[in-house]
Design a protein around this nucleic acid. Structure first.
Lengths: 230, 230
DNA sequence: GGGGCTATCGAACGTTCGTTCTATAGTACC
DNA sequence: GGTACTATAGAACGAACGTTCGATAGCCCC
């Protein structure tokens, strides 16, 4: 009936492709990898269980030994992917105090993971509102937490430098810049994560720190009006 | 067999919801509007022809009098939406010479259309690679043209101000900021298109004009290396 | 060597999919 | 009032969908 439980779906932080974990876990991880690729290519709705079966070289029925449903499969992929980004971010932020540096770490961590796991991230971004009810709200929770951290980093920066702008719009613009990458990045043409993180960090930090930059805001505009944050 | 041809699928630039055009065109436009809403909500693959039938209050078979296939329907929506953005942009750029102003016009035009037609734009962004072969490459062509225009605007700006940075990354970051909006904008909470265009324009223009802004690029970095553009 | 557990499969289930066939109201013109 | 065309619908098509059932290998333990 229901598939076996697994440390992958629990609180464990085992690498999706690591050699540790039981045989069951390792097999499931492999299936998740293949499924990620298929979802990435055809979209969640566009991918059939038969496509996944072909990609994993396992029979259709065999797959159901490892998970309950197609939806749960997507949930497992999204949860693992997102948890990993969040966990790595927390590690990297530890012990760093400079507000600008902390924002740069956020960007670096985000882009590094995005480029190293482009397919998984596309599935995360693209199938954002597919999951319903319990699964959906759990992923949404992780996402909200991630957003909240970034917002705090930007607020720290504002305080430290005495700046005044809408954190919400700034943070969401930053997410836009970074997340859009999955639609255009070509590893054979484009720079790597470190270089991109520097470039986007520059655009964001310079953009947000209203030094009267080469081309100042021309025309009539009062001090930037505040906009509600979330 | 094949559905009637229509000025909507030709070179005409009639408003999708305008009162002009034949009865056939007006009915098709209404159907496209309903379909846009359904595609937006459930995704192209997730939406069934029966969903569209329900939304348009027309029988399943009746729909096929207006178009040949589900895929063509998506094509019509995407083509109309994108052509309109491009057309309006060209009108607005006419007669404006200042490079910064031209970039700001681009941003303003983009955001204004995005917020006024959020659902259509989501279908455009989200179902980017669904269309295959002929349809797909035609839409891709319009998209490439739009990108090219933005790239030129940024290059003009660079020349005018004697700046040096990767146009490709700058432009794609800008697109990211702007396009991501469809995932978060809430008209009851967030500013309108004009205000957002100003804010994002500020971030982008200040960010890209490396005045030594409040928080300069710290650490070792040579003059920004060039990255291939497309 | 037999019982129980893990892992896998072929075949089928009922449902829904995109599309088409055929029929028929409504309308306009002769 | 007949004829031609527009616009719509009911019913059905075969294919594909997510999922389940029952069977059966391989393996470890007693």
């Amino acid at each position: 009936m229901a598939s076996r439980s697994s440390s992958l779906s629990g609180r464990s932080s085992a690498q999706i492709s690591a050699g540790d974990g039981s045989r069951f876990d390792r097999r499931l991880a492999k299936i998740l990898e293949h499924a990620t690729e298929v979802f990435c290519e055809k979209g969640y709705e566009g991918a059939s269980m038969r496509d996944l079966s072909r990609a994993s070289r396992m029979s259709l029925a065999g797959l159901y030994y490892y998970f309950d449903s197609k939806e749960k499969l997507l949930y497992l992929i999204q949860k693992y992917t997102f948890s990993t980004i969040l966990e790595r971010l927390r590690q990297r932020l530890e012990g760093v105090d400079d507000p600008e540096q902390r924002v740069r770490i956020f960007i670096q961590n985000h882009l590094e993971y995005f480029l190293a796991n482009q397919k998984a991230v596309k599935v995360l971004s693209h199938e954002d509102d597919v999951l319903k009810n319990g699964y959906g709200s759990e992923i949404a929770g992780i996402k909200r937490e991630y957003y909240r951290i970034c917002l705090e980093l930007v607020d720290e920066l504002k305080r430290a430098l005495g700046l005044e702008f809408s954190s919400r719009i700034a943070v969401l613009s930053l997410f836009g810049m970074m997340n859009w990458i999955y639609t255009w990045h070509n590893p054979r043409v484009d720079a790597d994560a470190g270089e991109l993180a520097r470039e986007m960090g520059d655009i964001f930090l310079h953009g947000v720190c209203r030094g009267r930059g080469g081309s100042g805001p021309q025309g009539k505009r009062a001090s930037s009006p505040k906009v509600r944050v979330m």
